[in-house]
Amino acid sequence: MAELTDAQIDAAMERGKIAHLNEPRATKARYNKKLGRMVVNLANGCTFTFPPHLAQGLETATDEQLAQVEILGAGYGLHWEALDADLSVPGLLAGLFGTKAYMARQAGRATSAAKAAAARQNGAKGGRPPKSAQG
């Protein structure tokens, strides 16, 4: 493996400083029981809130468990020891509340008036038609 040069190390350190200044990092996190929301204060002065039932690992957590949130590292993660749950702050801000598989399952659970109407219409016709064999 090639050795890193001083210039490469210096460049990596500079990228780290820039990322530290610009990437979203949590400075404070708490559960607001009255609102039923996790509240995350960011280093840039913004505040982000989300309903914990959306997040993988927090779906069935009690108020007491949610209140035990810790900030990881330099503020890039949130951790709940009792729940063995970790969430990425940049991920949460991007609308990612869990793994790819978890998010796909959540998307399949979405309901809407149109989806309910289509289900009723299919039910009135005897349900979903059987899949035909392609040969």
Score class of each variant (00 low, 15 high):
Ala26Glu: 07
Ala94Gln: 14
Gly16Ile: 10
Gly126Asp: 15
Pro24Arg: 03
Gly73Pro: 09
Lys17Tyr: 10
Leu83Ser: 06
Ala116Ser: 00
His20Phe: 12
Lys34Ala: 15
Ser112Met: 12
Asp84Pro: 10
Arg25Cys: 05
Pro90Glu: 15
Leu72Phe: 01
Gly127Leu: 15
Glu59Cys: 11
Leu87Cys: 14
Arg15Val: 01
Arg25Glu: 02
Ala55Tyr: 11
Glu70Lys: 14
Leu92Val: 13
Gln106Asn: 12
Arg120Trp: 09
Gly75Cys: 08
Gly73Ile: 11
Arg128Ile: 14
Arg25Trp: 02
Ala118Val: 05
Glu59Trp: 05
Lys125Ala: 13
Pro52Phe: 13
Pro51Val: 13
Met1Lys: 12
Glu3Cys: 11
Pro90Met: 15
Lys100Tyr: 00
Ala94Tyr: 03
Ala85Asp: 05
Asn44Lys: 00
Met38Arg: 11
Leu78Met: 08
Asp84Tyr: 11
Ala29Glu: 00
Ala2Leu: 12
Met13Glu: 12
Gln8Glu: 15
Ala67Met: 10
Ala61Gly: 08
Ala61Asn: 07
Gln121Ile: 06
Gly77Trp: 04
Lys28Val: 00
Arg30Ile: 01
Pro52Ile: 12
Lys33Gln: 13
Cys46Thr: 03
Ile71Tyr: 10
Tyr76Phe: 07
Thr5Trp: 14
His79Tyr: 03
Ile18Leu: 06
Lys125Arg: 13
Ala110Arg: 09
Asp6Lys: 15
Pro129Arg: 08
Arg105Lys: 13
Ile18Arg: 03
